[in-house]
Design a protein around this nucleic acid. Structure first.
Lengths: 190, 190
DNA sequence: AAGATAGATGAATAATTATTCAGCTAAAAG
DNA sequence: CTTTTAGCTGAATAATTATTCATCTATCTT
């Protein structure tokens, strides 16, 4: 028997992400995905039962990758600002390097494919980030605002900046990154 | 002869916005729109040649309304921080009161319906906002960063916060608004 | 090396959705 | 009040897209 080529799943995912970035979730079809990935339409159905399963599985993959990346090198015992900086930079790096995944996740959030439970699970993966913010509040280093607001303030500003830079093909330098960090930090610090 | 009921256009628009907010651009059909608006599918085609025209016209309407609202009560001769506050509050108010339009515009940006020219035109409507930021830089009141970055920093943070509050049905109080404003302001001030 | 099994193909079919249109209705004009 | 015109309807049709499947192919097993 011929073994399943698991590498094809990655190719299907990659093709889907590129197409969604270019056309949006509303603009993609299964045959477009197959063509972009370089094989026949029917092949996609060997790996995924249908379009919905493909989208949902890709969403879950992106969502967990995203959360893992968030906490790379994060040491909860380090000083607050250091820890915050680590996660902030991870967030920025992920947004830049996996821009198509960022767009895909965002589009899925407003689509019939993703259920409320999935949405909730996605948020829960960022719990350590929330806990860090709470710690910053306790240590009186940042403003005494709801942790969600702080998190959204930070993420929202990073996201829109990365979008702008990506669409306008602007190189994001280290100096630029530190300037952005400073904006975020100044915004939340006590 | 029977006159065209121009009010129907508004009903079609409203139905479309609600559906896109609930289902995303990928999840809506012409019959869903007609049903939601309360009349027959064919009627939609009396007012719009096809689905694309409907989406594009609605996008343009939302986009101009948005830009107009941005500058309501804006007096360029007032002190920088006052002017900034006015526009910032307009942005927030619009995002809250016209949340479905916000979602719709965002979805359209990543869709096959909107062309690059339309995207560009949308940005150009916010020119006075850019000019205000440049003025703030000249007056050394805000950081010497690219005006686009400042604008995106502000808009991104506001957008994600409004999304969160809307989806979680949190009431946005005046105190809350001023707290958010302060975060933004602290982030960009020199 | 031959048989067996599961992957790969892409044209055929099914399902969904966009769009049309023949008949119907309401309002304006005369 | 009648005519006329254009809006309205929703079932019918066209177009698009998802999904299947008969056939072919590659590779594993013995």
């Amino acid at each position: 028997m011929k073994p399943k080529d698991e590498g094809k799943i990655a190719e299907i995912y990659a093709a889907t992400l590129v197409l969604v970035k270019e056309q949006g979730l509303a603009g993609i079809t299964m045959s477009m995905i197959a063509k972009k990935a370089g094989f026949a339409t029917g092949t996609v159905y060997i790996y995924f039962a249908n379009k919905e399963e493909l989208i949902v599985k890709l969403f879950e993959k992106c969502s967990t990758d995203y959360a893992n990346d968030y906490f790379a090198g994060y040491d909860p015992s380090s000083p607050f600002k250091v820890a915050f900086h680590t996660i902030w930079m991870n967030m920025l790096r992920y947004s830049i390097e996996h821009f198509d995944e960022l767009v895909f996740i965002e589009q899925c959030f407003h689509s019939p494919f993703i259920t409320d439970e999935t949405r909730k699970a996605t948020k829960e993966r960022l719990l350590p980030w929330r806990e860090l913010i709470e710690r910053g509040k306790k240590e009186k280093l940042i403003k005494q605002l709801d942790a969600s607001w702080i998190m959204l303030f930070v993420r929202g500003s990073v996201r829109d900046l990365v979008k702008h830079c990506t669409y306008n093909q602007l190189k994001i330098t280290d100096t630029f990154k530190e300037s952005l960090f400073e904006m975020c930090w100044d915004g939340i610090k006590d």
